[in-house]
Nucleic acid binder design. Structure first.
Lengths: 337, 337
DNA sequence: GTTAGCACTCAAAGGCGTTGAGTGCTAAAA
DNA sequence: TTTTAGCACTCAACGCCTTTGAGTGCTAAC
């Protein structure tokens, strides 16, 4: 598609721009990256690259900056993948394993770590309950008619909710209910818990089964925004593209809209995905890119995480970091068995 | 201390400055607040107020702005307390009661509501476990040697933690342990749970009592920053004092330091407290004021909440809002009995 | 004690020329 | 045919200057 020299020029422009955040001129490239040709030649190449849409010019007497298309080509074909030393890998692992007993905390820590390593804003989408397996259900009396529903789900997720019941239950009744529910639910996923199983419970336990189902369903309900954790929001204020407060505000406000991320970090594909600029964005967030990956338990995708930053970001490093955290997280969760 | 006219001038300056964020001149005051005297007279009064430290002048040909001392006097003696209509009170109440079944969620919602009503950054410090009363302890098997410790504390706080044990326990053993713990703990506060009670448990249950204590203590341990909830950080970006990104960054970064707020929102006094500017601040946060209050259960203080904003804030409104949320929260928590 | 008048100060805004990084084009060199 | 030196041109950024106007303090008259 692009001949060798054009590729090298494009790569030089992009890497220089990523580093300096300033439009890059032909002279600079000729000096920094020994391409063996004069600035004039590079100028010609850059003019071609602009014509074909890989570069842009903020104004006529400025250097070039990469377009979304340019970044896309860079990410797909030009950038040199970054790799870690065993030592770095170990550090991440040992940082994360500290919190590994409980999944919710583990993924929160994974997010914080990702934010800190990338110096970007990080997002982690926790597994929706549908993806998890029942391990234990416990009903605990709170009050005359309030019951605490504790759900232990695999891999080590604890959900609890206090639910108001239609009528009062004694301690003994609740224990009975708990035992019954555990019998029916142990080992099945929420997904399997269609109307069939629910009807089965009602059938088997009669009126009391109805109550079980009621408690269970209400115990499981949770708000969407509790599934998204964010960290490192303030890091983006270090980026020159956000030196204008209005832009920073727009970004931060959009970033806080947690539902937004539920949609953006879809769980379709495997591996690290990069979404550049306008490729996929909610209009509120201008000139930003997203690097995301999914994490899984035993090959089964259960959630996703990623970082957001200006389109001018160190893609190689970001992709490597997201990959590293996602795979370490998957490893730990799979070991939780 | 200040004669009547000086007070009126000071008040006029402060209220104008709060509204406009611009230094206030003598002419403006003469025009807006009919004090019945000419700008020249007001100038004289302002010169006096500056000499006694209530006002400051950014530069010689600008108007005056209030000093910390000026704000302090305004808050203590000049401002007109704001009050709410029954309708507004009801709205807040009905917004909060939606989430009142669980305390953690309730106080989070209180924080969000406070942030939204004041358009400021809000902080809520959750009650430390020491302030709460045991209601139920449940040990649930997770894995061979992992036990889920669920603590239900009054008023309706649920804590859970997965703890690794020295040796394996069967389901039956865990139930037995739970029952034993419940017997000893029901109704007592963590505070009462000194070495005495712990030793009592060990004495009564022998070796198994040791395990109980171990599980309990570890189940109760939690990180400091989990006790602080913040909301509405981005609101402060609307304030002109943060139009400079560096200042905004400094603020937001300090604001994210959750431990900081544990110290700042001490639980000493009753009622709403106002801390202005340098009166009490960590050096990172410049030119900010803090409006805080405690909330309580049946007269017993268990936590605190408040807002942070630029020293130039609508004190009357902020104080009223913080008061409103704190008292509504206290009311709901007390009703949780 | 109050106020009109006046000279004075100074930040903010606007105009203006300079600078310099960068371009595209042309014509010569390879 | 491709590369490059040379050159005229563009334009944001910067510094410098002037103007403007909001505001002051002082003085003298009311």
């Amino acid at each position: 598609m692009l001949d060798d020299r054009k590729s090298r020029v494009l790569r030089a422009v992009i890497e220089d721009y990523i580093e300096t955040a300033e439009p890059v001129g032909s002279r600079t490239i000729a000096r920094k990256h020994r391409l063996g040709v004069s600035p004039a030649t590079i100028r010609n190449e850059m003019a071609d690259l602009e014509e074909t849409g890989y570069l842009e010019q903020p104004h006529v007497s400025a250097g070039r900056i990469p377009s979304d298309k340019g970044y896309r080509f860079y990410v797909d074909a030009l950038m040199e993948p970054m790799s870690f030393t065993l030592e770095q890998y170990r550090q991440v692992y040992s940082e994360m394993i500290k919190h590994y007993r409980e999944m919710e905390r583990l993924i929160q820590e994974a997010g914080k770590l990702l934010a800190s390593l990338t110096q970007s804003a990080a997002i982690v989408v926790a597994p929706p309950i549908e993806q998890l397996t029942f391990q234990h259900v416990q009903l605990i009396p709170v009050d005359e008619r309030d019951v605490l529903v504790v759900l232990l789900l695999h891999p080590n997720v604890v959900k609890n909710k206090i639910v108001r019941t239609e009528r009062a239950f004694s301690s003994a009744e609740l224990i009975q209910l708990s035992v019954g529910l555990n019998q029916k639910l142990k080992g099945i996923t929420y997904r399997d818990l269609g109307p069939t199983v629910l009807r089965e419970i009602v059938g088997e336990f009669g009126e009391i089964g109805q109550v079980m189902v009621e408690l269970l369903v209400r115990g499981l309900s949770s708000e969407k925004d509790e599934q998204v954790y964010s960290s490192g929001m303030t890091h983006i204020l270090n980026q020159p593209e956000f030196k204008d407060v209005e832009k920073a505000k727009a970004f931060l406000e959009a970033f806080e809209q947690k539902e937004l991320w539920l949609n953006l970090l879809g769980e379709d594909s495997q591996g690290v995905r990069v979404k550049i600029g306008k490729e996929n964005f909610h209009s509120d967030i201008q000139d930003c890119s997203l690097v995301t990956a999914t994490y899984h338990v035993g090959g089964h995708v259960i959630g996703s995480l990623g970082i957001v930053g200006p389109t001018r970001m160190e893609y190689a490093r970001m992709v490597a970091m997201v990959e590293l955290i996602a795979s370490t997280l998957s490893e730990l969760l799979t070991d939780m068995k």
